[in-house]
Design a binder for these strands. Structure first.
Length: 286
DNA sequence: TTTGCCGGGCG
DNA sequence: CGCCCGGCAAA
């Protein structure tokens, strides 16, 4: 009786705390750096729209923060009891990473600078084999092609043959450096390898952000390499390297998030067994 | 401060 | 064995 009581009590307490006290006391594992001020659906919708547009049109990659945007950034941290009611039955998507605050910034940035002031750069690029000639005016590109590639062909009138050798395209110069480098840095590295693991356990999350993921990931893949090059792959130390005889073998702690962080203290029942027992995680284990 | 998990206790 | 937690170390 006593033991049982103890266990159950402990459990229920932890559950209680998990769903109310603990979480409301502070914030979620990684959530609310910027969420404090973000509870406007309208704004989020705007952001979302902007994001989708970006991903559709030109931007390098648009991660899936909009999953969060979609839920209006309630932040699982504060008052999750209400937070978990964000959708019909499903508890709540696991807080994924802290880096989405970057996204917020990015979005905000983009939001303030909607495509209005970037038109001025539409260029014409010569598509002739080796030639990469680029110019700003239709006239000059045609002149270039006619002279350089087609040779002197100025009969009385032309059949616009030049048109086949150049393309017209828009180039947005305003803010490529910040956007590009920033995102490339922050998103892909973890996203790809890590996300694969996460899919195993977290499904709704995928559901939520399927669209963004698809578009984002397909683009962000190549970037991953360049990033991870400088990130040190971290090979596992199985044996050898008697660096520390004193410490038997404490695993170096893999860099991907485990059940606890993924699902949060609430939803502890979603954790893998080992995590529940405070043992080495098996689901997201390296 | 939080997170991952080893060591160890209990049934 | 399964289950749980104290407490340490890394982040």
């Amino acid at each position: 009786m006593k033991a049982l009581t103890r266990q159950q009590a402990a459990r229920s307490i932890s559950m209680l705390r998990g769903s109310h006290v603990t979480r409301s006391r502070k914030r979620g594992p990684s959530s609310s750096y910027d969420l404090g001020y973000g509870e406007r659906d309208d704004q989020m919708n705007e952001c979302n729209a902007a994001l989708v547009l970006m991903s559709l049109s030109c931007s390098p990659n648009s991660p899936r923060p909009s999953a969060w945007g979609g839920r209006s950034s309630v932040s699982p941290g504060a008052s999750s009891s209400s937070g978990s009611s964000w959708r019909s039955g499903t508890p709540s998507p696991p807080p994924v990473s802290s880096s989405f605050s970057d996204e917020g910034i990015a979005m905000d940035y983009e939001d303030h600078h909607p495509r209005k002031k970037r038109v001025n750069s539409v260029v014409f690029e010569c598509t002739w084999r080796g030639c990469g000639y680029i110019t700003h005016t239709c006239f000059s590109i045609e002149a270039h092609i006619r002279q350089t590639h087609l040779g002197p062909k100025k009969e009385g009138e032309s059949d616009h043959e030049e048109e086949f050798y150049y393309t017209e395209r828009e180039v947005s110069t305003p803010a490529p450096p910040p956007t590009l480098s920033h995102r490339d840095m922050c998103r892909p590295p973890h996203e790809d390898p890590d996300y694969q693991r996460q899919i195993v356990g977290s499904y709704r999350q995928g559901l939520l952000s399927t669209m963004q993921n698809i578009s984002a990931r397909s683009i962000s893949i190549p970037v991953t390499h360049s990033w991870s090059n400088s990130h040190s792959p971290k090979h596992m130390k199985i044996s050898a390297s008697g660096a520390s005889p004193s410490s038997p073998g404490r695993r170096p702690r893999s860099d991907n998030k485990k059940c606890r962080k993924v699902y949060g203290m609430d939803q502890r029942d979603q954790w893998c067994t080992q995590c529940k027992w405070k043992k080495a995680c098996t689901r997201f284990g390296d």
